[in-house]
Design a protein around this nucleic acid. Structure first.
Length: 814
RNA sequence: GCGGACGUGGUGAAAUUGGUAUACACGCCAGACUUAGGAUCUGGUGCCGCAAGGCGUGGAGGUUCAAGUCCUCUCGUCCGCACCA
């Protein structure tokens, strides 16, 4: 028996690949290309099984395309800014930079031990100052084009820790670290105007329909949340105008149900609405009412969603734009400040929220859409119907009325058709040290000024102490002190750093030109490599990262940097790795350490198991004995290679072979055909290719022909190389001097059998099988089928005979 | 509530897209070799039944010569969004 020692083979090939730069793409831009990309990792310290799965999938795809003669870019890098580095600094007293770069060095070795065919020359970390430099340049260009702006925002603030907290860091209204109650605070921050691209981001989802999972497209569509309707102004009544000091004439509302306009019985403002604030500040409400409104304002938006409907009558009124009647104005906790002007027209009869609010505060309900199924005593009627009590629109169906009423408003110039999006602008400010500094300067005379391009990058100071309390850039003695690039007077640097999603929004472009110190990338390289042909990563990035990256690509296009509309043509969202039915996690203690698996069985076994146990899109349940099974298959593959006698693809006269030999040959080429198919149709169902290869090996065992064995190894090592590369390179080198890596033609004769087996079914139920010559006539086949199934045909009349060539015969009897 | 994905043996999963359901693997059972086996090899393994046979892709209907696959309804699991006017 030939020994299979994975550690020896794997080390040998990993070293050879590294030394020979085997996986660097060619500069020849005439070659057909494939850009295969996995989502880059955060350098948390050690790789986990999710990484192994992610990179094994993309590696198999990359290796396949290399064999097919493509120029393949399969890069790796590090998403290396972020909070865990600061947390480690607080906990272990390590500098975030040291911690991060040590982790990168360790994880790079771990990934190498998997035999991944990454380009080494294009690797970078997003915390490299060169990367920061170009990113800051992009941000400044966006500012110049109005795509970046500064405004005040309400944020979660922890007074004891002296920092802003992300929503995920607020647990039951308290700080995750010190347990102090979090307060909402208005703070200035930088925002990227992603909403300017809402329509294009929505429209271009169509371009991705072929290559992206439907689920992700739907999630993005919902997130962008386009809705079409009518926007108009509700004017304050004369006495209300006076009451609010003539500061306001009215407010805008947006509705998707203009057909219900005659059913408006009150209106409601968000607690943050300027009119509400005016009433509060000028003590125009009772003490109780003011307290109630303040309580609403202090409740975070996420909590309001689950809270009961609450409101306060503001004791002012507006005029209905069509009827001229007075309508009371309330403040309500369910009205969102950031959407549709922060105010709604309320139609309790035809909107469930409005109905609940009206029920609670005893407000009138006017039915204007009639339907037999409607029961307004129980709930609002939101379905179709006919308009009633709607002046000249009475009698129209509500879908006709929508259009008619919008046109009516436009004709009178008192309202207009409007499109609203749920998508909000992207707040990128983080009061954190370990991130890319936002390259702006606050000048007492010039205001907000971008840093001069020639001064970039604005880098982080190394001499900081990370305590977790406050932003170290803020407390650093000198860092933020600078000169205004415009007037050269003393000025202060912005101390916030950028959200790490900014870095991951353009890293795929940086890979196109290997580590150019002069520019972010070369235009011609991007033109050649982009878009990414296959992107592989977790479903958890379905919205944020994938939406931001799509936006960034479009924005950089419009800034003149690139000529690409969509960054990722095809997307594969891999399933999670589970153990005992739950996601592997340290806290659950159900992790399997990739290093230990590689040490015990080798990388090829780990890769084989991961690709065989489930299709890549599905969840993968870890199974120790199935890992063992994968190892045994490789060992058997190595062992049986002793049957190979030829050093090249042998010529075989198919007709001269025995039945078993023919079957073995057929199975081998079926596996090859399957392999080609899964890449072409982008299903990447490696599990079926591996199963086909196992079937072929089983069929080979039933015969002894050395030529058949030789041919089989020539083919099987070719198609298994993407999955178990080390052992395939080893065997291929020894047996065929690697001449079998490349395109292999499938001889069609192997699929032509001497005889074929047809199923015979009676009334669709399988009763027997017949073996016939492939060229036998339909009549003879039917005759034979009837003969063999005579038992089932006794005392019956055949009413129909169906013959599906190569498949079956169906006899329909009565 | 809205949207999406998915329900196939004891388990992970196949099924050329309407044509022989359960390939391949794990597990289990039996046997061979062996001092031994948690190694290796061989065979068996959907369910009920002694058998003939019957029943089987979450459930109920339907279309069809033929349905895991198409249609309608329904139950269940998972995921995303969630007071978006």
């Amino acid at each position: 028996m030939i020994q299979y020692e994975p550690s020896k083979i794997e080390q040998k090939w990993q070293t050879r690949w590294y030394k020979s730069k085997a996986f660097e793409p060619s500069d020849d831009k005439n070659l057909p290309k494939q850009y295969i990309l996995s989502m880059f990792p955060y350098p948390s310290g050690r790789i986990h099984m999710g990484h192994v799965r992610n990179y094994t999938i993309s590696d198999a795809i990359a290796r396949h395309y290399r064999q097919k003669g493509f120029n393949v870019l399969h890069p790796i890098g590090w998403d290396s800014f972020g909070m865990p580095a600061e947390n480690a600094a607080i906990k272990h007293g390590l500098h975030p930079k040291k911690w991060t770069y040590e982790n990168i060095d360790y994880m790079r070795k771990e990934l190498a031990s998997l035999g991944l065919s990454f380009s080494r020359e294009r690797e970078f970390a997003t915390s490299d100052s060169l990367y920061t430099k170009f990113e800051q340049e992009f941000i400044i260009r966006m500012f110049e084009e109005g795509l970046l702006y500064e405004k005040k925002q309400r944020v979660n603030w922890c007074e004891t820790c002296h920092t802003v907290l992300a929503n995920e860091q607020v647990i039951d209204g308290r700080c995750w670290r010190c347990d102090n109650e979090v307060e909402l605070r208005e703070m200035p921050g930088f925002y990227i105007r992603i909403t300017a691209y809402a329509q294009e981001l929505l429209d271009d989802l169509k371009k991705l329909e072929k290559g992206w999972p439907k689920q992700v497209l739907t999630m993005q569509e919902n997130w962008i949340g386009r809705s079409e309707g009518l926007s108009f102004t509700l004017l304050l009544s004369e006495e209300s105008k006076r009451k609010t000091g003539d500061k306001f004439t009215g407010f805008d509302v947006f509705t998707t149900r203009p057909d219900t306009i005659y059913g408006v019985s009150y209106t409601a403002l968000a607690p943050e609405h300027p009119i509400v604030n005016y009433l509060l500040e000028n003590s125009l409400l009772t003490h109780e009412k003011r307290a109630a409104i303040k309580a609403m304002q202090n409740m975070p938006e996420r909590e309001r969603a689950t809270a009961d409907k609450e409101g306060v009558d503001l004791e002012i009124s507006v005029i209905h734009p069509l009827t001229g009647k007075k309508i009371p104005v309330w403040v309500a906790n369910f009205v969102l400040a950031g959407y549709g002007g922060g105010a709604v027209m309320a139609v309790p009869a035809h909107d469930q929220r409005d109905w609940e609010f009206a029920a609670k505060y005893n407000l009138p309900v006017h039915e204007v859409i009639a339907s037999e199924q409607s029961d307004l005593a129980r709930e609002a009627w939101t379905g179709e119907g006919t308009l009633t009590e709607s002046a000249k629109f009475t009698g129209l169906s509500n879908s006709e009325a929508k259009e008619a009423i919008i046109r009516h408003f436009e004709a009178l110039a008192i309202g207009k058709r409007e499109i609203n999006y749920k998508l909000r602008d992207w707040g990128i400010s983080r009061q954190r040290y370990w991130g890319a500094p936002i390259p702006f300067i606050h000048c007492p005379s010039c205001g907000l000024v971008p840093e001069a391009i020639e001064n970039l990058p604005v880098t982080l100071p190394d001499d900081v102490e990370i305590t977790g309390e406050g932003n170290p850039l803020e407390s650093h003695p000198t860092w933020k002190k600078t000169k205004c690039p415009r007037c050269h007077s003393d000025a202060t640097r912005e101390t916030d750093t950028m959200d790490t999603f900014v870095q991951s929004s353009w890293y795929f472009l940086r890979y196109c030109t290997p580590n150019d110190p002069e520019r972010p990338f070369r235009r011609e390289d991007v033109d050649y490599w982009m878009s990414v042909d296959q992107y592989v990563g977790g479903i958890e990035h379905a919205i944020l990262h994938l939406l931001y990256a799509r936006f960034f690509t479009k924005a950089l296009r419009d800034l003149g940097y690139i000529n690409v509309d969509e960054p990722f043509t095809n997307l594969l969202t891999q399933g999670m790795v589970l153990k005992d039915g739950a996601k592997m996690s340290k806290s659950k203690g159900n992790t399997v350490d990739p290093d230990a698996i590689i040490a015990k069985y080798g990388a090829d076994t780990a890769r084989l198991f991961i690709l065989f146990a489930a299709p890549p899109q599905k969840e993968l349940e870890w199974n120790d004995s199935a890992v063992e099974g994968a190892f045994k298959f490789i060992r058997r593959l190595v062992d049986r290679s002793a049957h190979v006698t030829e050093r090249a693809l042998p010529a075989i006269t198919h007709a001269s072979l025995s039945k078993e030999e023919k079957t073995a040959r057929r199975k081998v080429y079926e596996a090859l055909r399957k392999s080609n198919e899964i890449y072409e149709n982008r299903s990447f169902a490696f599990n079926t290719v591996i199963a086909a290869a196992m079937e072929a090996l089983n069929a080979l065992n039933a015969q002894k022909n050395p030529l058949v064995w030789s041919e089989a190894y020539f083919v099987l090592l070719n198609l298994l190389e993407p999955v178990i590369p080390h052992v395939c390179w080893e065997l291929s080198e020894t047996l065929f001097e690697r001449k079998n890596f490349g395109e292999i033609t499938i001889p069609e004769e192997v699929f032509e059998a001497d005889s074929i087996v047809l199923a015979v079914t009676v009334n669709g139920k399988k009763r027997d099988e017949i073996e016939v010559a492939p060229d036998l006539s339909k009549e003879e086949i039917l005759e034979k089928a009837k003969e063999q199934c005579a038992k089932w045909l006794e005392e019956k009349t055949i009413v129909k005979e169906i013959y599906v060539p190569g498949k079956l015969v169906n006899l329909v009897v009565k």
